[in-house]
């Protein structure tokens, strides 16, 4: 990586460019509010400005997610569990190439999967989000959530199994990749 050639400003800029959106979605899911999430993520980036790059090194992603998580938990609304998955995205699934049958099938699969995810305990949802939305490794997730690697492995396996069973219940869909 050419991080060494970057100025601190450019480094933060690059981090923002890469992580602003993902961190906001994550923060919003933890604290249950988009506005609060913006504040949290802004604070995290400001903290990053003052951070020692050499200490963070390649661990930028877990560092940022950890900071965001801690702050988001501090400010989260009392009533907020993990924020529910957003609805109303089904129509966004239609793309030019799909026939009506495929679109319907996609919508159905999304309905099932988001239904299953919503039923999951908060920590499973969170682990899933970090894995599937943010593409983090088990190890990074374990650092961020402050649990052991085994726990992460277990949380995700349970969650994925629940999703699998939900899809399985509607046979046929599960065969579609």
């Amino acid at each position: 990586m050419n991080q060494n050639n970057l100025s601190q400003t450019a480094w933060v800029g690059e981090a923002m460019q890469r992580f602003e959106g993902p961190l906001l979605r994550y923060a919003a899911s933890v604290c249950g509010d988009a506005e609060l999430a913006r504040d949290v993520v802004q604070d995290a980036f400001i903290k990053l400005c003052e951070a020692d790059r050499t200490k963070i090194g390649e661990r930028l992603a877990p560092w940022l997610y950890t900071v965001v998580r801690n702050r988001a938990i501090n400010v989260r609304r009392k009533e907020a569990r993990m924020a529910p998955l957003y609805e109303g995205q089904a129509e966004a699934l239609a793309n030019g190439q799909d026939g009506p049958g495929e679109v319907a099938q996609k919508k159905e699969a999304h309905r099932l999967v988001s239904g299953a995810l919503r039923q999951l305990p908060g920590n499973q949802q969170e682990a899933c989000r970090l894995k599937f939305q943010n593409g983090l490794t088990y190890r990074e997730i374990s650092e961020i959530m402050g649990v052991s690697l085994g726990t992460v492995s277990n949380l995700i396996a349970q969650a994925l199994d629940a999703v699998r069973l939900e899809l399985q219940a509607k046979n046929g869909l599960a065969q579609e990749g």
């Binding site: 959106g21 906001l24 913006r38 699934l93 199994d161 699998r164 579609e176």
Partner: peptide, 23 residues
């Protein structure tokens, strides 16, 4: 295969969430 399918759909569902950005 089922788990992989479940993983891909889960990823897809998360990907469909609206994005946010800073002010």
């Amino acid at each position: 295969e089922e788990l992989r399918t479940a993983a891909l759909w889960t990823q897809d569902v998360f990907a469909q969430e609206p994005s946010l950005s800073l002010e």
